[in-house]
Amino acid sequence: MNLHAIRAIYLFEMHRTWRTIMQSIISPVISTSLYFVVFGSAIGGRIPEINGVSYGAFIVPGLVMLSLLTQSISNASFGIYFPKFTGTIYELLSAPVSYFEIVVAYVGAAASKSIILGVIILATAALFVPMRIEHPFVMVLFLVLTAVTFSLFGFIIGIWADGFEKLQLVPLMIVTPLTFLGGSFYSIDMLPPFWRTVTLFNPVVYLISGFRWSFYSVSDVHIGTSLGMTAVFLVVCILIVRWMFKTGYRLKS
């Protein structure tokens, strides 16, 4: 195991975050906080409680998930896309590092950043809305699992992308809509039966539902199902990354 390499890549990536702290931490925190101000304090008071949770508090888990997903994907996809774009990837490819080590370092760094971000957003939310965390252990588990899974997903996108548009495409066109429609702002029980069924094909529903359960013990789907679906997605991502590295897909000619 080349621990020096994992450490070098991890620190390099974390260093990049501090260098771009405005864009990687501060701006997502501010934009998410706006939701808390608007929906939590301003109009939240006029919306009835959902399952006994005030609306401001109800949307917190979904919004944290939204940041966690988009930031994990963009951190990890940029992290690996950029060396490809500038050509510095030559060094990674010629170094005595295994694919596993590369993934651990890049995905680890991207996930770390999103977890830090998630915690900051939670702390900020607590300033605006009354919230509680009933199952802290499950909350942390979901936070970490989601950050890792979607960093891995971002890593895949970063390898797949051969231009900046593609890099933006998936987060913008797929992930954000899925998150908004995944029950960030409502309980899927509030939907007509047909749309409820359609929504169950949206993987983000399981994440948000499970995450919200760890806060308020209320969920759209069973917590076990949520965990299971997240684990399945994680395994799929691992398999794709393995295949990419084995074949040198878009990394080696």
């Binding site: 080349n2 020096h4 890549i9 390099f12 500038t86 050509g87 030559y90 005595p96 590092v97």
Partner: peptide, 26 residues
């Protein structure tokens, strides 16, 4: 390896980028 193309990180310092390479090679 010193490749033909000039490809380096832009925003890192000389010291950091050279130290990074050493770590990368274990």
């Amino acid at each position: 390896l010193v490749p033909q193309e000039l490809t380096t990180d832009a925003f890192e310092t000389v010291w950091n980028t050279v130290s990074f390479s050493r770590g990368l090679f274990g």
